[in-house]
């Protein structure tokens, strides 16, 4: 296999007496959709937050394309090219689509208006937002200056994904992107995820929804008791096998391999 884009080794995170991450490992390869699944409390949110800069681990190290990374804030991760689509979407409902796309990294006008008067370049931000949404086939729904709270759940998800796709240069993390959506909108979002992948962007997908995971994932990272239990190919197993691995009912053969990696 090629070099991984993002690796994590021996991540440990403790909250008081609770150990959320217990020497967890992680690997993401280029051009793949890697699903991260696990029972509630398995520590997958903690793992994801460590990668998106929302929290700092106590031990362990992460490498992005071979370079060690140490994020102090979500902004650090964003600057390194890692974009996250949060389960809550992190959109401001009262602001427009374009305002939301560029929230926290607004473009200013050139020259006097931008430098001295700090004036935003609305036209340019709206044009770029429109381009991004059109690329992902989302322009059927929006007037770019519409406020986000007037959009449906699926449309909002689309805006959040488009924002991540527009600014992510390395990888995109998506946390439960279909959890709040109906069947039709879920399918739309899954298509969107495949579109983003087709553009060469690796994706980390966190989901509880097994059918969705099996539909789009190239590999599945199973998280259990604060560490990676194994990584499997969804073609080799059925959904019920995977649920059995997740809950500890059966032990997958790949787990031995994993133990060997951990022992290194």
């Amino acid at each position: 296999m090629t070099q991984p884009i993002l690796t994590a080794r021996n991540l440990v995170k403790r909250y008081g007496r609770v150990t959320a991450l217990d020497h967890a490992n992680f690997d993401l390869y280029s051009g793949e959709i890697l699903a991260v699944i696990g029972d509630n409390g398995a520590g997958k949110s903690t793992l994801i937050k460590a990668m998106s800069g929302a929290l700092q681990v106590d031990e362990g190290e992460m490498h992005l394309r071979g370079e060690q990374i140490n994020f102090r804030s979500p902004n650090d991760a964003r600057n390194a090219g890692i974009e996250t689509v949060y389960q809550t979407l992190a959109l401001s409902p009262a602001l427009s689509i374009a305002d939301n796309m560029f929230l926290g990294r607004e473009l200013r006008k050139p020259g006097f208006a931008g430098k001295v008067l700090r004036q935003l370049d609305r036209k340019k931000m709206e044009r770029l937002s429109r381009e991004k949404l059109t690329e992902l086939g989302l322009m059927t729904i929006q007037n770019i200056s519409q406020v986000v709270e007037t959009l449906s759940g699926g449309q909002r998800q689309g805006i959040a994904v488009a924002r991540a796709a527009a600014f992510g240069s390395q990888l995109i993390i998506m946390d439960e992107p279909t959890a709040a959506l109906g069947v039709k909108e879920s399918n739309r979002v899954l298509d969107l995820i495949r579109d983003v992948k087709a553009r060469g962007m690796p994706i980390v997908l966190i989901s509880h929804n097994m059918p969705h995971v099996f539909e789009v994932a190239d590999r599945i990272h199973i998280h259990r008791l604060g560490r990676r239990l194994c990584t499997i190919n969804p073609k080799d197993y059925s959904m019920s096998d995977v649920v059995a691995f997740m809950t500890g009912a059966t032990v997958p053969p790949e787990a031995e391999l994993e133990a060997a990696v951990a022992a290194e």
Partner: peptide
């Protein structure tokens, strides 16, 4: 100015968006 609105609207969302 936009950030003032975003903070009032939903401070957590604003923080995660980089405000």
């Amino acid at each position: 100015g936009r950030h003032v609105y975003a903070v009032g609207d939903d401070p957590e969302a604003a923080e995660l968006s980089g405000v």
